[in-house]
Amino acid sequence: MRLITYSRAADAAGAITTVSSDPTSDFLAGGTTEIDLLRQNVLTPRRLVDINALPLTGVEQAPDGGLRIGALARMSEVAASPLVRERFPVIAEALESGASPQLRNMASMGGNLMQRVRCPYYRDTASPCNRREPGTGCSAVEGFSRGHAVLGTSEHCIATHPSDVAVALAALDARVHTHGSRGEQTYSIDDFFLTPGHTPHREHPLEHGELITAIEVPSSPVARRSLYLKVRDRESYEFALVSAACALSLVDGTIADVRLALGGVATKPWRAHRAEGVLLGAEAGRESFTEAARVELADARPTANNAFKTGLAQRVIVRALETLTANGRTS
């Protein structure tokens, strides 16, 4: 880890000014990504501004019945919130399926959205990586890519977005509030995450020094019946191979409302708009579920190592929908 300076921000404006004015500075929140990647020499700031003392915490009900999550609320705090557990179970489940209890006590919600890809080549400074060093090439395309994405990829990067909770937030149309030198901004979660395209090093639309202040989840009655289904090799403490965040409401056997997003298979938290299009108004059942899954994965571009993900993702979609319609749970 290179030499760094450390300062503790007393107010958001000071933190934003400091980081905005120095491209070699970074915010430090939970540190679970920042310190890890600093030690790997993947991130190379010279200055860390600790924002943990800023009053950006709390999980509250918004006036519209939605949810307002402070950017510095810890994953564990949000998951434990009765409000979240009751009204947005998919968020609580996604949070508690991620990382480990210790990491969830550390990691902030804002930091979770800002976490970097878990591609081993990105983390290994000896390997070419367009995301880390634009123009050097993508080692994963021809390399070991079992965990990599099949959706939203480009020839320049196929790294999977690692977040679980962002998948749930994507399903529920969350908005991300920021504060930067341009003032306050709000991004829809879909716009907040960028697919790699020709610019894999750009993961978000944020300018340097723009600080996430809050995450807002709009009121969503459908979310009361929701779940997060995560498939992985190990039973815990592992990133998803495939995951699905799903919320659903039925009227007389017909799908009245549905939200579906995928994790582990795409370069960003993947809102399954196509599948939702098939499902909305359809009769709930294996037939419509299978068709929705097929349509969503139709453009999948797997590698030799991760071809199984295309089929697995479809099965996960079907299982999530079946579980919700049966009002049961996977065991």
């Binding site: 081993p120 080692s139 390399g143 190990r234 039973e235 592992e238």
Partner: peptide, 18 residues
């Protein structure tokens, strides 16, 4: 490259309590 694909405990999975 002739290098190991996994070089960490996040990539080389050993059993956890669960």
């Amino acid at each position: 490259t002739g290098r190991w694909a996994a070089g960490s405990l996040g990539d080389y999975l050993i059993a956890v309590n669960a």
